[in-house]
Design a protein around this nucleic acid. Structure first.
Lengths: 187, 187
DNA sequence: CCATTTGGTATCGACTCGATACTATTAGCA
DNA sequence: TGCTAATAGTATCGAGTCGATACCAAATGG
């Protein structure tokens, strides 16, 4: 019989395996995750505060992490026009290159060895578990914009779509990015 | 289409979720994992070196981690009789209590919400991925003694079983612990 | 018997992480 | 309008991780 804690131990060990080992690139795991986050986040979510929510960390930690990414020239900070307290963080050319050049980990390779069917099943189960855990902790999903309950496709006031929560126009490219406000449809 | 890197991202996010949040207990994740390791490791594996292999860390880091567990009175070090360089690490009563009192995480709870069938399938897939990744990295499995290719059940020289690699007798309780030398049967 | 290997420790620098205290800007409301 | 929150970030502290390097002592192996 498989207990929840056994599965969790597997997840933790796999996570640790992914984090360790490929440490020769002078970038630690949180920095990679942060870089990947900013690359996939939409314009409402490209901020220190959103990354803080995503990682489940504290503001102070995230501020430092972003500072070291900035020192390495991978990321650029910009004061937002609408709200002059807010900061928008964007990848530099060098940051994009760094992310694109990231080699697959041993875990990636092992996953590639599964059949497409098994991998799909695995992904579905993990998504379900992640959703459940996030809801238990009152955390956001950070899913794709177009899968959000507030996403209005081809709305008359949109360009061409629209966010019903923030009341902002959305382009096709926006719809494929992750958002800190995203809420799945059937909850 | 689900890419390996997408699944890996899910695993990393779940791992992070498990690590964060329950930080009020004055024990960080590596310390928990180390404590849990020593509770489940057999007498050949209850050493700093074995934990180092298990975690995929370096000797220095692990030495420090064990030191902080010792400072907290959760663990006790003892020089091994057979090899006076080697150290055996055992949980104290207080360490056992601490481990037993660990509350389930949000991820545990979410896993408990899956059906038994789905959880079993998930466990099986994760085990497969873990095995594959470990082999790619030339790391040990740390599986149960009784599932090892060197485990000899009811061997005449054993008590009642025997390890064919280390040539040591094994009790029933030993067979249910994890071992740094464990190698699955069909590899 | 002496070189090598093996098991652990000590220390350094960069970083994570939670906590606390702080500044600047915006929003709420009377 | 004006004052008080609330919000977005930063700075700093202490404990700890992590990889790297250097080191010590016991065991091993010609």
């Amino acid at each position: 019989m498989k207990k929840p804690s056994d599965i969790n131990a597997l997840i933790e060990r796999l996570g640790r395996l992914g984090r360790s080992g490929r440490g020769e690139d002078a970038m630690n795991p949180v920095q990679w995750e942060s870089l990947a986050y900013f690359a996939r986040a939409n314009r409402f979510s490209r901020s220190p505060g959103a990354l803080t929510e995503y990682l489940g960390a504290t503001k102070g930690t995230v501020s430092q992490t972003i500072n070291s990414l900035e020192r390495k020239g991978l990321v650029r900070k910009r004061v937002a026009a609408e709200d002059r307290r807010a900061i928008s963080v964007d990848l530099t050319r060098s940051g994009e290159k760094m992310l694109a050049a990231k080699p697959p980990s041993a875990v990636d390779d092992a996953l590639a060895g599964l059949s497409a069917v098994e991998r799909r099943q695995l992904g579905r189960s993990l998504e379900k578990v992640l959703s459940g855990a996030l809801e238990r902790r009152d955390m956001q999903h950070f899913g794709l914009c177009r899968t959000c309950r507030f996403f209005q496709r081809n709305h008359k006031d949109g360009d061409p779509h629209r966010c019903g929560l923030l009341e902002e126009p959305l382009r096709d490219s926006d719809a494929e990015l992750i958002c800190r406000e995203q809420t799945p449809k059937n909850t």
